[in-house]
Amino acid sequence: MRFLVVAVAALLLAPGATAGGRPVQADLEAEIVCLTCKTTLDQSNAPIAIRMKAYIRDRIAAGDSAAAIKAQLVDQFGPGVLAEPPKTGFDLLAWALPLGALAVGVVVVGALAWTWSRRGDDEPEASGGVLDPDLERRLDDELDRFED
């Protein structure tokens, strides 16, 4: 569980590849989606993708930060322009749900494993009532053959 908390925190706090220093054109092109072809800009030569690349180049030259450039693009085209959904507000669900599902899965599997192991300990040695006698007999035969 502690691992999951750390993983979520790491995802939430992870800085972008371009944060801090001067934005890198190639990094931003990999983080922005072409409006018409739905691939990232670095994989597209559609007219609007070429225009968006030029816009990014201009904004970098003008001294804007990566975050500012992304914010401008989101203002123009909406959050769908980002290859990764923002880690805030409703969009945070896109990050949290898979981790939540993983956590639930781990808890369920752990609980099942714990239940099974406890049952194994609690069950009396002679648990003949679980299987019907016919099946029990056939199973004994099979196991005897197997052991031979």
Binding site: L112, W116, R119, G120, A126, S127, V130, L131, L139, L143
Partner: peptide
């Protein structure tokens, strides 16, 4: 062989009910 994991002389077989439910 999963069968070896339980039942009277192989105690784990009593888990079959739980496994069946999970399945």
């Amino acid at each position: 062989m999963v069968v070896l994991a339980g039942r009277s002389r192989y105690p784990g077989l009593c888990r079959r009910g739980v496994i069946g439910k999970a399945r």
